[in-house]
Lab assay of single mutants.
Amino acid sequence: KHLIERYYHQLTEGCGNEACTNEFCASCPTFLRMDNNAAAIKALELYKINAKLCDPH
């Protein structure tokens, strides 16, 4: 559950690194913003595939 919350935060708030290159992070310049419901679904999907989590900045 904690990991899913981290994915959700990364998708909605980002890691804080303006030069982030993680396509699944709101801080990445090319990230496409999504609403909270879509972010919750995506967080579950990312958890299932063990996607990369950013280190908070």
Rank of each mutant, 00 (worst) to 15 (best):
S27Q: 05
T21V: 13
N50D: 14
E18D: 13
R33T: 11
K42F: 02
C20Y: 01
I4D: 06
N22K: 01
Q10T: 06
H2R: 11
A51Q: 03
D55T: 08
Q10H: 06
F24W: 15
A43K: 04
S27T: 06
C20L: 00
G14V: 00
Y47T: 15
I41R: 13
C28N: 12
H9A: 13
A19F: 11
A39H: 04
E5T: 13
F31I: 05
N50L: 06
A38S: 07
N22V: 03
K48G: 04
C28D: 05
A40P: 05
A19G: 12
E18F: 05
L11C: 05
L53T: 07
T21P: 08
G16I: 03
L3V: 02
L53Q: 14
C15F: 00
A38D: 03
F31T: 11
N22L: 01
R6E: 08
N50R: 11
H9M: 12
G16L: 07
P56Q: 09
I4E: 11
G14W: 00
C28E: 06
R6M: 08
I49L: 10
N37T: 12
K1W: 01
T12Y: 08
I41T: 12
L3S: 13
A19K: 13
A51G: 08
E5D: 13
R6Q: 14
C20N: 00
Q10D: 02
K48C: 02
E23P: 07
N37A: 14
I41D: 14
E5Y: 05
N37G: 11
K1M: 03
G14E: 00
E23T: 11
R33N: 07
E23K: 09
L3Y: 12
E13I: 10
N22C: 02
R6S: 11
H2C: 04
I4K: 15
E13N: 07
M34L: 13
E13T: 12
E45K: 06
H2V: 10
L46E: 02
H2D: 15
T30S: 13
A43H: 00
N37D: 14
R6W: 03
L3C: 13
T21M: 06
Y7Q: 01
K42M: 03
K1S: 01
T30A: 13
A26V: 05
E23F: 08
R33I: 07
F24Y: 11
Y8S: 09
A26Q: 05
A40V: 05
E45P: 01
N22P: 00
E13P: 00
E13A: 14
R6F: 06
T21F: 12
E5P: 09
H57Q: 13
D55H: 04
L53I: 11
A38Q: 07
A43C: 07
H9Q: 14
L46R: 01
E18A: 13
N50V: 05
C25N: 01
C20I: 00
K48Q: 07
F24T: 12
K42D: 02
M34D: 11
Y8Q: 15
L53C: 06
R6C: 03
K42A: 05
A43S: 14
E45L: 04
H57R: 09
Y8H: 12
C15P: 00
R33A: 07
H2F: 15
A51H: 06
I4G: 06
N22T: 06
D35I: 05
C25I: 02
R33Y: 04
E13Q: 15
T30R: 14
G14C: 00
F24H: 14
N17D: 10
A39E: 02
S27V: 02
A26M: 06
L32W: 04
L3W: 10
K42W: 03
H57E: 02
D35E: 11
Y8D: 02
A43F: 00
F31P: 05
H9G: 12
P29W: 02
A43R: 01
D35L: 08
N36I: 07
H9I: 13
L46C: 11
D55S: 09
N37F: 02
H57L: 10
A19Y: 07
L11W: 00
I41A: 13
C25E: 01
Y47E: 15
F24S: 11
T12Q: 08
N36Y: 03
K1N: 02
K48N: 13
L53Y: 09
P29L: 05
A26S: 10
R33F: 02
C25P: 00
F24N: 12
Y47S: 15
L11E: 01
L53V: 09
K48H: 06
Q10M: 10
E23R: 10
L3E: 04
L44T: 15
N37C: 05
D35K: 04
N37I: 04
K1R: 07
C25W: 00
Y47F: 15
L46N: 03
D55V: 12
A43Q: 02
C25K: 00
L32Q: 14
E5W: 08
N36K: 13
H9N: 11
E45R: 09
R33C: 05
G16Q: 09
Y7G: 01
N50M: 08
F31R: 06
A40C: 15
C15K: 00
Y8E: 11
H57Y: 13
Y8W: 05
A38I: 05
A19T: 12
L44C: 11
I4S: 13
Y7D: 01
I41E: 14
F31A: 14
P56R: 14
L46D: 02
N36L: 12
A40L: 08
D55C: 07
A43D: 01
C15S: 00
R6Y: 04
E18K: 08
A40E: 15
P29A: 06
E23D: 09
N37H: 08
G14I: 00
T12W: 03
S27D: 06
C15E: 00
M34F: 09
P56V: 12
D35V: 05
N50T: 12
R33M: 06
P29V: 05
T21G: 11
C15A: 01
E23W: 06
D55I: 05
T12S: 10
L3F: 14
A51Y: 04
